[in-house]
Amino acid sequence: MPIKKQYLKSKPECKITFVVPAKDAEKVEVAGDFNNWKSSSLKKYKNGNFKGQLNLPVDKEYQFRYIVDGEWVNETEADSYQWNDFAAAENSVLAV
Rank of each mutant, 00 (worst) to 15 (best):
M1Y: 07
K5S: 08
L8M: 10
K9S: 13
K9T: 10
S10M: 07
K11Q: 14
E13S: 09
E13W: 07
C14H: 01
K15T: 07
K15P: 01
T17Q: 10
T17L: 07
P21C: 08
A22H: 05
A22Q: 08
A25M: 13
E26Y: 12
K27F: 15
K27H: 12
K27V: 15
K27L: 14
A31F: 03
D33S: 06
D33M: 04
N36F: 12
W37L: 06
W37A: 01
K38F: 12
K38Q: 14
S39N: 10
S39A: 15
S40T: 14
S41H: 12
K44V: 08
K44R: 14
K44Y: 08
Y45A: 13
Y45T: 14
K46Q: 12
N49E: 12
K51I: 15
G52L: 03
G52M: 02
Q53S: 14
N55F: 09
N55C: 11
N55L: 15
N55A: 12
P57T: 02
D59Q: 11
D59V: 12
Y62C: 06
F64T: 00
R65W: 04
Y66G: 00
Y66V: 02
I67C: 09
V68G: 04
V68L: 10
V68N: 06
V68W: 02
D69N: 13
G70F: 07
G70E: 02
W72E: 01
W72Y: 03
N74D: 08
N74P: 09
T76Y: 02
A78E: 01
S80C: 14
Y81H: 08
Y81V: 15
Q82C: 12
Q82D: 12
Q82V: 15
W83C: 04
N84Y: 05
D85T: 05
D85E: 08
D85R: 07
F86A: 13
A89V: 07
V93M: 11
A95H: 07
